[in-house]
Amino acid sequence: MTAVLAASLSSQGHSFLTPTGVEIVFVLVGLAVLGAAVLTVTTSQLVHAALWLVVALGGLAIEYLLLTAEFIAWVQVLIYLGSVVVLVLFGLMLTKAPIGRSPDADSGNRWVALGVAVVAAATLVTLVVDAFRSTWMDLSSGGGSTGANGEVLFRYWVLPFEALSVLLLAALVGAIVLSRRHREEG
């Protein structure tokens, strides 16, 4: 088994035992992202959770860069870090989330959730590793530049793009309607 694995890996000329620099950086940043994500879902201080989320999402932007998807990386920084996290913070504030430790941040469902998550993670990782353990991707050519993305987006994806703008409009209107205080309530 290991012989076959080594043979298949060596035939490609790439081995997990001889990582490239990009891979090392990717793994390190990935570990940071993962740690931040775990802290996000486990910390008992709600605002800290949002801040750890910022770390995780920012780490992901770095990963995108490492994967040569620079435009996606910037969009990630702009939208997620710029707007979504701000929105979340506003949400926490508006729902009068306590600042500081709140011992009941996790519901009683935690152990079930942990079980489901661990089993799911085991399954997924097993499957993914089994499927892609010898797949190699070439990062040389920069296919994720802004130009390339814009060309593709406005050549082939125009219709979904416009539909998406309608969706955004609908979400905007919906958010306004939902969060608007009714007159009789006020």
Binding site: A120, A121, V125, F132, R133, T135, L139
Partner: peptide
């Protein structure tokens, strides 16, 4: 770069999110 790195990272991240949704 091996595809397995981002794929495994994505899987783990997904499961962490899953835990958060449920817990």
């Amino acid at each position: 770069m091996h595809l397995a790195y981002p794929a495994v990272l994505a899987a783990l991240l997904f499961c962490v999110g899953l835990y958060g949704v449920l817990a």
